[in-house]
């Protein structure tokens, strides 16, 4: 079955860039503000910029939280969280207070610690990512890939075995995670040229497991 991708529209972030990038791979793409539309998709992308609390509120208000539990937890459809969308996969977040996340990847979202390094926040720009090809989402690179990041917070997973890629910015930042059908990219694959397209290709090659 050829993939049919739903990009979740929950009121945060620029979805057009994600849709443009995925369209390049000749697959069907739909931007969905209606949780019912996730039923017809084979792959789900959760994009997003903004803050953790606002993101969870946007998902809850539109009824996406039970829909994601059903499609991703029960039916095991592949899910890719991008930037804030990856952070929302965590158990909890500490941006402007304490918020509960989707809980697909055990871990917490914290501000990048730049006290030692004195580096500027947000972490904006292109950074090298060391990938682990134990994870299908990170496979197929013949060189060290480089991706575009824009963020001040990052996901700290409880279990190291979900980590599929890391970068350095004053401390080690988890850039890519995968736990079975659930994937997350802290960087923006849709804005990362050819290396970003490879991430989407790897994601679309996943099937419900």
């Amino acid at each position: 079955m050829s993939p049919s991708v739903a990009i979740i529209d929950y009121g945060v972030g620029n979805l057009t860039s994600v849709a443009n990038a995925v369209s390049r791979l000749q697959v069907e793409v739909r931007i969905s503000a209606d949780p019912l539309e996730l039923k017809n998709a084979t792959h789900i992308i959760l994009p997003g910029v903004g803050s953790f609390g606002e993101g969870m509120k946007g998902l809850a208000e539109r009824g996406f939280i039970p829909a994601l539990q059903e499609e991703v937890r029960t039916k095991k459809k592949p899910l890719l969280g991008i930037c804030l969308g990856m952070q929302l996969l965590a158990t909890e977040g500490f941006e402007h207070g304490h918020h509960q996340g989707l809980g697909f990847i055990p871990g917490s979202v914290r501000m990048i610690d730049t006290t030692q390094s004195g580096l500027r926040l947000p972490h904006i720009g292109w950074n090298d990512v060391a990938v682990s090809d134990r994870h299908p989402i990170a496979r197929g690179f013949t060189h060290m890939p480089i991706f575009y990041f824009v963020h001040s917070f990052h996901l700290v997973p409880e279990q190291a075995d979900v980590i599929a890629g890391t970068c350095e910015y004053g401390e080690r930042i988890v850039a890519l995670v995968q736990s079975a059908n659930v994937c997350g990219a802290q960087f923006h694959p849709e804005k990362s040229h050819d290396d970003g397209l490879r991430i989407f290709q790897n994601f679309l090659a996943l099937s419900s497991c």
Binding site: S17, R24, S192, H193, L197
Partner: peptide
């Protein structure tokens, strides 16, 4: 934006929140 696989910033004559919204919505 359909051809632009890298970050795209747009400026000029932005006077309102709607001016921003329409630019972001178009890529």
């Amino acid at each position: 934006s359909e051809k632009c696989m890298i970050p795209l910033t747009v400026g000029g004559k932005i006077r309102s929140i709607d001016d921003i919204r329409v630019r972001l919505a178009n890529g």
